[in-house]
Amino acid sequence: MTQPVPWNDLQDFLAIARSGQLARAAAAMGVDATTIGRRLRRLEARLGRTLFEQTREGQVLTEAGEALLAQVERMARAADAIASDGATGTLTGVLRVSVSEGFGAFFVARHLPAFAQAHPGLTVDLVASSGFLSPSRREADVAVLLARPRSGPLVAAKLSDYALHLYAARDYLAAHPAPTRATLGTQHRLVGYIPDLLYAPELRYLDDIDARLVPHLRSSSIQAQARLIESGAGIGVLPHFIAGANPALVRVLPDIAIRRAFWLVTHRDTRRLARVRAFRAWLADLVARHRAELLG
């Protein structure tokens, strides 16, 4: 008689499939990479199939692994539904949300405690960094991206437009001539991204003003750029939701306005999970109520 496969082993398999790397899966499961690797070999031996191929990037599902993944994800969704949609309606488990550094730190983080308070049984991972986790590879349950994905098993909806403008510190403006388009980058030092470290083409803000403009003080972090501008280092482009409410910053050259968009993205197989649905609805409502903060 074939022995049943322990659910814990299948959860380990799911973590590896979603993260694509043993180390990431081990961190997610709270064990070390050696342990999760041993468990994977045990599962493969029990099933008599190779589930992953080892590549330089990590673990890639084989055909047998893809077939098993479809079954395990159905089981995970059923388990999640039991945990999340029980008699009390309490959400449980872990929700991982990937957002850009600025949107995460300056907008989502300010309001997230209200969501957490409404769902005390849910653990929320807010991954706000220079770069995005991929819902397609199941690294995140929800992602807020700067462009609509062109491929993959994803469901995307436009969350909101947002506005960006040129800003400078009040002290900087008091000590320098009034900036003009012609003096940007010459009489006025520019603050911006490091071109070869951009994680999305939508971050090439200065190109919207003049493709010849090059920042003199550069950082991969929008938070660091905001601090540089606030400290009087120069003039730079910042989202209105970062700079608009900062009394130390002044919008300059008000005829220059840049617009970008946020896209709310989930994997099509997990978009109906209760915790994902709840967060999507909460974030859409939050953005609708604070539209002026985003659009300026």
Rank of each mutant, 00 (worst) to 15 (best):
S221E: 12
L217V: 14
G185Q: 06
A257M: 11
S151K: 12
P4T: 07
M75A: 15
V5D: 04
M29P: 01
S220P: 09
L159K: 02
H267R: 08
P177H: 09
F279G: 02
T35L: 08
V142A: 02
L184W: 02
S220T: 14
A157R: 15
L217R: 14
R49L: 13
L126C: 05
Q21G: 11
A175F: 06
H188F: 04
A292V: 10
E293K: 07
A70F: 03
G236N: 06
D9W: 15
G152M: 08
Q223C: 12
Q54N: 10
V124C: 02
A274T: 08
A81Q: 14
S221N: 10
F107E: 00
L283K: 04
H267V: 00
S220F: 05
P254M: 11
T34E: 06
T180I: 05
D207I: 06
H216N: 10
V252F: 09
A163F: 07
A23V: 13
S136N: 13
A288R: 12
A143V: 04
L203I: 08
H240S: 13
G89F: 05
L68Q: 02
D161C: 07
A156T: 12
E66R: 15
R18M: 03
A174R: 14
L273V: 03
V5T: 15
L159W: 04
D141K: 05
L294D: 07
E101R: 11
T2Y: 12
T35A: 11
Q54M: 09
Q54E: 11
R181Q: 12
Q59T: 01
H176K: 09
L184P: 00
G30N: 05
F107D: 01
K158V: 04
A114V: 08
A257F: 00
A17Q: 02
F52E: 00
T88W: 01
A284D: 08
R251D: 06
L159Q: 01
P113R: 05
G185M: 05
F52T: 00
H267M: 04
G232S: 06
D161A: 14
V99L: 07
D12Q: 07
L164E: 13
V144A: 07
R77Q: 09
A156Y: 05
A261D: 14
D207K: 13
P120A: 11
K158H: 12
R41H: 11
A23C: 06
E230G: 09
G86F: 03
Y162F: 15
A174N: 13
A105I: 13
Q223S: 15
I209F: 09
L217D: 13
E53H: 13
F107R: 03
G236H: 06
R289V: 09
V287R: 04
F262H: 15
A23F: 11
L14D: 07
A226T: 12
R150F: 06
A147S: 15
L126W: 05
L166W: 03
A26Q: 03
T62K: 00
V94A: 09
